[in-house]
Nucleic acid binder design. Sequence first.
DNA 1: ATTCGATATTAACTTTTGTTAGAAAACTTT
DNA 2: AAAGTTTTCTAACAAAAGTTAATATCGAAT
Lengths: 247, 247
Amino acid sequence: MAEFLIRKLEHFASLSFDDKHALDQASRQRTRRIRSRDDIVHEGDLPQGVNLILDGWACRYKTLEDGRRQIIAYLLPGDLCDQNVSILGEMDHSIGTVTAVTLAEIPTETMRQLTAGHARLSQALCWEALVAAAIQREWTVNIGQRTAFERLGHLLCELYVRLRAVGLTQGTTCELPLTQAEIADTIGLSVVHVNRTLQELRSVGLISLRGRELTIHRLEALQRAVQFNPNYLHLGREGRHLDSNEA
Amino acid sequence: MAEFLIRKLEHFASLSFDDKHALDQASRQRTRRIRSRDDIVHEGDLPQGVNLILDGWACRYKTLEDGRRQIIAYLLPGDLCDQNVSILGEMDHSIGTVTAVTLAEIPTETMRQLTAGHARLSQALCWEALVAAAIQREWTVNIGQRTAFERLGHLLCELYVRLRAVGLTQGTTCELPLTQAEIADTIGLSVVHVNRTLQELRSVGLISLRGRELTIHRLEALQRAVQFNPNYLHLGREGRHLDSNEA
DNA sequence: ATTCGATATTAACTTTTGTTAGAAAACTTT
DNA sequence: AAAGTTTTCTAACAAAAGTTAATATCGAAT
């Protein structure tokens, strides 16, 4: 069940069999299936427990009064949402699905036991949260400083590398179940401009994007072109050499 | 020493005398004075312990290869930097001062003892970290969705409210030791446009900004004009009613 | 008070990005 | 297969923001 999370955590440290088993058990207690483009948690809700994405894509987002929407983060398989948020009074943003999602709800108490009894695992979960924060910081840089071309390219690099870290890429290809409208709300551009910019990325031969399938033809070149430095993902060995079909 | 931090944490929960004493002691162990516009921590450094801003302003920032710079966060008196970052291999961004800064360096071990022996305090520190993450998310929204006018106004609201939460405002006035160039690097605009936008905020009578002193003439009106909703700061009671010269 | 450097301000002009609207293509549902 | 819906794509035009460069102002140091 928790295979993606485990795979991700092992970029940080190898876990014992016991660690992995405990995590796996925790993720089996209660699972939920949510359909595509539906809300998981709403701004204002009292947060409870921890959600682990087992399958599918979700996103954090925030809506302004006049309807403008910003996607704040993507939650991919293996991502934990909101360790500890129950400390905050209420959610200050919403979480919604992009595709259909399978979720494990891990009760706070289970979480507490997990971290209490497993020092290494506890550290790994802390690492997970720190990386999530680092990603959020990088998004600030991305939206604040980069051109449309760089922003979009950077987003694609990040999603590709994160998916690769959990084994969800096939060679240079991965799923990208986002509409251009969603991409627009992610990088602070209009849909029209996202479309223009995608054309540009395609026309210089860096990517292909058809249906819901993204191929990055020359990852190194794309990284250079958009100043993507994977350090902030803290995957070790630059996160570069772990293709899902190599191992 | 830790008065600002304590003041901030008490928005979350009242601390016992013992909690406060322990925190205060921890903040006295080792302090450092860093002069204006100097680096505290550099990207690539191995992070150690936890820094507490005792006095002055600092910022997190990230620089792109071609010199573009994004300020990612402001660290105000009472702010803790990098609880737990020592888990990450190396810093993925730098921290520099805006003004001269007095810093308390709290060793990891002291931190561990603090949280181990003081459940309430430990929770409060967790809350601090969650709020920092919430601020980072809000910045994504700010830069991604808002107009220049809204972005700038939103930033000013946030800084004012955060300063007020630690008692560093006088009525409708607070310090704002930022140059327009720094503001520009914060909200992803050019210096010229920041200047234009500041003029606009002044000309509609919402703010005054002379020297390094900001006055927000009509906070409610400014909040409405720029869609600033202080919820994300999780200060309780909307964080609105704690003027430093009322109490 | 004078000088120097940094910061703020303004103007003219360019570029990027947004808006509106319509057409084409891709999916869904029937 | 047909109809309907969502998504993608284009074009023309408008608005926002960036760039360059020159001037003014402020503050620190002499």
